[in-house]
Design a protein around this nucleic acid. Structure first.
Lengths: 220, 220
DNA sequence: CCCTGTGAACCTGTTCACAGCG
DNA sequence: CGCTGTGAACAGGTTCACAGGG
């Protein structure tokens, strides 16, 4: 029988399946097997089938999955079948880059507003939007019924911004500031710490050197 | 007995412990208990102790951990105790933002070069570096013995860039392009798909309607 | 044959509970 | 006492293996 809550890693892979399917559709491919999907993503075919199995039965035995319909299903599951409005707080380098990034729009996200407190930035046009003062956040989020927000501020400002976002009724926050936010459990947080991600790479590169050192020499 | 390979999630949390410790040190704090660290990161104290336990014995019973020494240990484990050189490929919006970002330097990474193929971008100064043509990549990576690279190109270019990086002897790649790279297993890849990360938030916000249980995630 | 869907076995990571030290 | 370090119990995910459909 089906598990009540799908494993988080399975949900993460859903995004990868969707990405792959969109690419295949662009090449005119119409059907795909779990094995093919698995090969593209360097995982096992059983994993693909089990992941999709948490959400329904999308395939046909002996045939595989039809690319178009499965794409639609995954979009619906992820909630990106309808365009989803997002605000960006912080118009520094990273905020600007995100606002100009075309990838979000393609994936069903619309960046509808940007906020900052610096007078030098407020009023500037970036991508499709004009930067507004942080004090306007509440009004705009409510008026446009925005559910998702991106925090791209310095870490010192992140908690205050998060508080404002929660008060404005935001439901999910993508946090690029290297801080752990204190927020009510009704709001989801996706932490993205770029420096920490590089650190992970550094570790793996370093670990490889010491791969065949049988002496456990990590603690000095 | 100690496990041979530390769990990947534990290594990821190491970066968070380090981040927290650096913050505490900035506030003049000198010792910290597993319970305090756990509270900051919304995890359990046992988790903190077990994670650190994979790498050595750093604490003193009845006292806790000394902030300074533990910070040093974690940096050494992650390989960021010495400055680590990194190149960035792709000088678009995202590449520029990363090149100007001060957070990497603070964490022990030095962005030593940027590459692009667009004549409009080659020669421009961004942050501390001048953008060079992609054809110079091999020479610079070898001459400066660079181990890590960031790919911030359009997805169509990512695989070719990855091939060049591998040929140049790069050991780890942080890939911001929404593609799965084909690379030899001797090279580590850290995939960062920003649109996919937003999709995950969308899912969790949407899932909340049905069941009130959003979770704070760590894995990218 | 080739494929999906799925219980069952396996494995990896987390939590518990306590011994031992300051 | 409070705190670390760690085996043991537990939970969550992944892989296996096979039933069943085209």
């Amino acid at each position: 029988m089906k598990q009540q809550t799908p494993p988080t890693p399975a949900v993460q892979r859903l995004s990868l399946y969707l990405r792959t399917l969109e690419q295949l559709a662009g090449q005119g491919v119409e059907k795909v097997s779990s094995r093919q999907l698995a090969t593209f993503l360097h995982i096992t075919a059983a994993q693909v089938r089990k992941d999709l199995g948490y959400f329904g039965q999308f395939g046909r035995p002996g045939v595989g999955y039809r690319v178009g319909p499965l794409t639609e299903h995954l979009r619906r599951i992820l909630g990106t079948d309808r365009t989803c409005r997002v605000v960006v707080v912080g118009a520094g380098d990273l905020g600007r880059a995100l606002l100009r990034h075309r990838g979000f729009r393609r994936k069903g996200f619309e960046l509808v507003a940007a906020f900052d407190i610096s007078p030098a930035k407020v009023g500037r046009q970036i991508g499709q939007v004009t930067v507004r003062h942080l004090d306007d956040l509440d009004e705009i989020v409510r008026r446009q019924d925005v559910k998702l927000a991106v925090i791209a501020t310095p870490p010192e400002a992140a908690q205050d911004v998060a508080d404002r976002l929660c008060r404005a009724g935001i439901k999910g926050i993508l946090n690029f500031a290297p801080t752990t936010l204190e927020i009510p459990p009704s709001v989801a947080v996706g932490p993205v710490d770029l420096a920490a991600t590089l650190e992970q790479l550094s570790f793996r590169v370093r670990a490889e050197r010491a791969a065949d050192a049988p002496t456990e020499g990590i603690a000095p």
